[in-house]
Design a binder for these strands. Structure first.
Lengths: 161, 161
DNA sequence: GCTCTTTAGTTGTAGCGTCAATAGTTAATG
DNA sequence: CATTAACTATTGACGCTACAACTAAAGAGC
């Protein structure tokens, strides 16, 4: 690490800043949501993805995919969200191995009540500091990064909405 | 979340991709380091920052700053790293409240041995997918994001190296 | 039809991070 | 000076995630 530079100075600098953002951003999102809604960002994002799904329902595997989560992680979170009455799980009729997760009316209300504060946090911390060109560049760069991070596009992160 | 768009489609898309990267990148870094060196990325980064410091020594607060960590987090990590013989803590002579963390020779060896594999992972997942313009854009955008994420520049993330 | 493999999901455990509380030290105020 | 406030660091408890092991059902090969 002393006299041999593995990354160029420009690369190293950009990398360190990316690391800083990756370390700091989750904390900012989590603490606002924890304070205002007693939800982690991942819990909120899970509810939000269900709220955008047809019939507010997705199979666990599909939900894990669009939330970029492993199945065990989602399963634990689903247990907690179900206990709190925000979602309900039911066996899938088509495939008896599968489970459907459905947003309950209370879950919908929770998303509706929580969204404004969360979006404000996102706007303040991510959208407002950037102009239109920055947003376009950010999108382009993140798309490129997701190729190796998610090689099979398993999580569908690179799809258009 | 249905008929009222809080973010424009472009903003929403860029935001979702940033979230995906923030969720996926730590796992990729952690699993390589865990597999090859039994180190978390944060542990490695902590050792690396010490390896670049004068006399391989930093005060806990300063170390927490450049690693973007809270003090309790660093304190726990320091306990583990000290037990494994990679760092040593000693009271600071100048300020009896303060503690200095110093990289041990074994800690230095660990960094030297671990760096190549880690850098390869970074290159494969972050540097190679991007061209020079992307790197410059990434640096510019991350710098802007760090303003609200780290308002007082407490962590020094925006400083030149 | 019967194995063998793959897929879907859950559960338990161990490890890491956050938060609140604490102790000890220094600086600021009157 | 004496008192209060602010800073530095650690600790313990609790919650969340990763990993491995496991159950159960669907598909593949013969």
């Amino acid at each position: 690490m002393d006299d041999f530079r593995w990354l160029t100075p420009d690369q190293l600098q950009a990398w360190k800043k990316l690391v800083a953002v990756v370390e700091l951003l989750p904390g900012v999102l989590d603490s606002q949501l924890q304070r205002d809604a007693e939800l982690t960002h991942f819990e909120y994002f899970t509810l939000a993805m269900l709220s955008e799904a047809p019939e507010h329902t997705l199979r666990m595997t599909a939900l894990a995919a669009i939330t970029n989560a492993t199945l065990p992680r989602l399963s634990h979170v689903a247990t907690r969200l179900e206990k709190r009455g925000y979602i309900q799980r039911s066996p899938c009729p088509d495939d008896r191995r599968a489970t459907n997760a459905t947003l309950t009316p209370q879950g919908w209300d929770k998303v509706v009540a929580t969204a404004p504060g969360h979006v404000t946090t996102v706007v303040d911390n991510v959208i407002d500091p950037l102009n239109a060109r920055d947003i376009a560049d950010l999108d382009r760069i993140m798309t490129k990064l997701l190729v190796p991070l998610d090689p099979e596009n398993k999580f569908g992160s690179r799809d258009r909405p």
